[in-house]
């Protein structure tokens, strides 16, 4: 699904990655761990083309991201659901329309899928908040709304960056449950977190691998976590 080959990346603050190679198989569930500032968010951003590596190649769905036009990149993003740590919405539109935004931008008819949409909103437990504006939502509600928005196009890959960062333990459990359910449905999941207790709990529910960023490299962490 996603292949990194000898990827190096640096920005103003210096080098972040050096010679990173990794391969995420379809249907796999990966945790991405590492200390704060190690480059977890950077790695996720590289996966969907929000950043470009200085060297090496990143292949998504078998094709190189390099040389893709902006429109081709847009098409790619419809197949990748992204949940950011600080999820952003269109703050002037109600939650329901925000969740349906990927459908709108890809030209899908809004009314025809409204039944599915309601189901999805219920699945993330936001039915009662459907008409609220994003700014009126709590951190946990925003995370769940972002997850619903990320999966509404039924993407093959879900990238989640600290989706449990702003929420309490109970809510993070609930979000993890949603992600593992998606993984069981066949989606490839890459979840960045610094919360190792979350990883431990999740490993009971799902066949997950742990990738660890350390010293500008990406390595498969031991099974002892």
């Amino acid at each position: 699904m996603i292949e990194f080959e000898n990827v190096s990346f640096s920005h103003g603050g210096g080098q972040v990655f050096r010679g990173v190679s990794a391969r995420l198989a379809p249907g796999s569930f990966h945790f991405l761990t590492g200390p704060s500032g190690a480059g977890k968010t950077t790695l996720l951003n590289l996966c969907y083309g929000a950043l470009r590596p200085q060297s090496g190649s990143i292949k998504v769905f078998g094709t190189d991201l390099k040389g893709r036009s902006r429109d081709q990149m847009a098409m790619l993003r419809r197949q990748i659901g992204v949940v950011h740590q600080d999820c952003q919405f269109l703050d002037h539109l109600p939650l329901l329309e925000n969740i349906a935004m990927p459908l709108l931008v890809s030209g899908k008819e809004f009314s025809r899928i409204s039944g599915d949409l309601k189901e999805l909103v219920a699945w993330v437990g936001l039915s009662a908040r459907a008409d609220a504006l994003p700014t009126e939502l709590s951190g946990g509600e925003r995370q769940r709304a972002a997850l619903a928005r990320a999966v509404i196009m039924s993407p093959d890959v879900i990238l989640a960056d600290e989706p449990t960062g702003n929420v309490d333990w109970e809510m993070s459990q609930r979000l993890m449950q949603l992600l593992t359910e998606l993984n069981r449905m066949g989606k490839t999941v890459l979840l960045a977190t610094h919360d190792l207790s979350l990883v431990r709990v999740a490993k009971a529910q799902v066949q997950a691998r742990v990738l660890r960023i350390s010293d500008k490299r990406l390595m498969l962490a031991g099974a002892d976590l």
Partner: peptide
């Protein structure tokens, strides 16, 4: 800028 970022994130083309 945030609107543009969000639209870009969810796969909107430049034309849209």
């Amino acid at each position: 800028a945030q609107v543009i970022d969000v639209l870009r994130l969810v796969g909107a083309r430049d034309g849209f």
